[in-house]
Structures are given as structure tokens and as C-alpha cells.
Simulated assay, not measured.
Amino acid sequence: MKLKALILKDLYTQKVYIYFFSMMWFVIVTNFFTDGSPFRHVLLLTILAFWLASSTNANTKSFEGESVLINSLPITRRQIVLAKYTSGLMWFAFAAIAVLVYIFLFDTFAPFPTRMMHVDEFILSLSGYYILLSVFYPILFQAGYHISSIVTFVFAFVVSMGIRIFHNMVENPGLTFMPGIVETLESNATLLMFVFIAFSIFITLISYGLSVRIYERKDF
């Protein structure tokens, strides 16, 4: 019950304008997602879920004030950190519903082919989302919201650039070895997905342990 209350606290204290900004964010980036590519829907879901989860800590002073209040309650700091990581599932569920509605409207009214997301795509998005949270939360507990947001953004940007570079290499006819690499990746797609999921779980567990260690040493 304590864990549930801590999770719901993040929901109740979420700023209303964040939801409006989320709706505007869909409109702003629509041009990027108009081809209906499933990969871009996965990316959209990952980013939206992270935006909702991270924005609950946007006010650094409020976060520190809440920490003082929460730590005066009969709960452990480990439970507080666990609630932060667990609440990520709640925000992911909200984002998934929003993206599914978006895809349905896109499929119904847009003049481009698309389809609803598959289960494996949701799992990949969830894994990528928790990797972002795993970067964000330890830095949040140590240095605050603004620094953690900047570091996570830089991390996501570097990864996305790496993916883009690989995509450009695949389309470069001068790199004759790339088709073989792509064929190998495609033939082992299921294995790679499980490796990515396992990596996400591993990183999340390390991040959680690090966050607990940092937060337990905090002096509020």
C-alpha cells in the first residue's frame, strides 16, 4: 500500500500543463512521423513515456521539499526510489494509450499506410524507455532535474545519431560488406531483441541500486 501511495503521489502531483504540452508535442512532431513507420511509433512511445515520467520531477525545489516531507513518513528511502522506478510503468501505460489512439487516427485519416503496433514493439519501446530512466534517475537523486535531463538528452542524442549513421551506411552502395551485416541482424532479430531486453533489465537493476545508494546518503 505504501508503494501504491507513492506511485499515485507522482500522478496526483503531475502538473496539468504537462498533459497539454504532451498533446502539443504530438502536433509539433507530426511531420516526423507521417510515413507511418512502426520504428517511428516505437520511438514516439519511448520519448513520450520518458517525458511524462521525468517531468514529475521538473521543479527541483518542489522535489527537494517533497523529499523532506516524504522522508519524515514511516517509509524507507529504498521504497521511495522503488516507487520512482515502478511508477515508470504507469507513465508508459498512459503513453501507450495515447500513441495507440494517435496511430488509429493516423491510420484512419492520413494518406499514408501504417498499422497498429505489435507486442514485440511495445516491449522494445519499454526496454528503451527504462534505459533512459536508468540514466535519468541516479543523476536526478545526485545532481537534480536539470542536469539529469541534459545528460539523458545528450545520451539519447548520441544513440540516435549512431542509429542514423548505421542507417546511412546500410544505404551506401559503396560499402559492400553492409548487406551481409544487415542480413545477419535480420536473421537473428529475435535473439537481438532478447539481448536488448536483457541489457535493459541489467542496466535498470544497476541504476536502481545506484539510486538507492545515492538517495540513502542524502541529507535532507
Rank of each mutant, 00 (worst) to 15 (best):
F39Y: 02
F21E: 01
T60Y: 10
Y102H: 14
L52T: 01
S127W: 10
V151N: 07
V27I: 10
L124F: 04
V170W: 11
T204S: 06
F33M: 02
F136T: 07
S148V: 13
E64T: 15
Q142L: 15
T13L: 07
F122S: 08
P111Q: 12
Y12T: 02
F153S: 14
Q14W: 00
A110I: 14
F104L: 01
A198H: 12
T30G: 08
E183I: 04
S54P: 04
E66T: 14
P111A: 06
L185K: 10
P111W: 09
I150N: 09
T176H: 11
G144T: 15
E216M: 09
I28P: 10
Y208I: 01
A49D: 13
E216C: 11
M116H: 12
K15R: 07
H118W: 09
A53C: 07
N31Q: 06
M161D: 02
F63A: 02
L89M: 10
Y12P: 00
I147Q: 11
I97D: 03
L132M: 12
K61N: 05
Q79Y: 11
W91Y: 10
I139L: 15
T190C: 07
T204E: 00
L192V: 03
V159P: 01
T190Q: 01
I47M: 13
T34E: 03
L82H: 07
D107R: 09
A83V: 01
Y215M: 03
F220L: 00
I18R: 04
F112M: 02
A58S: 03
A95D: 13
V81T: 08
R40D: 11
T76S: 06
F106E: 14
H146F: 15
R213Q: 08
V212H: 09
F202G: 08
D10F: 00
A96S: 06
S54K: 14
F122V: 02
L185N: 00
D107C: 12
L124R: 07
R164M: 05
M178W: 04
L82P: 03
L185H: 05
W25N: 12
T60H: 07
F106S: 14
A49C: 08
M116R: 05
T46I: 03
P111I: 12
I123G: 10
F26S: 12
T46N: 10
F32V: 13
A198W: 14
S87M: 05
V170E: 05
G209W: 01
L52C: 09
G144Q: 15
T30I: 13
T46L: 08
I206D: 09
V154Q: 09
F220I: 03
V151G: 13
T114H: 13
E171K: 11
D219L: 11
Y129E: 15
S54C: 14
R213I: 09
V42P: 00
L100H: 11
A5I: 03
L52M: 06
G162E: 08
R77L: 10
N71Q: 07
N71A: 03
R77Q: 06
A110Q: 14
M169T: 01
M169I: 05
S160F: 00
T176S: 14
L133C: 07
V212W: 00
L48E: 15
T190N: 07
E171T: 06
S22Y: 11
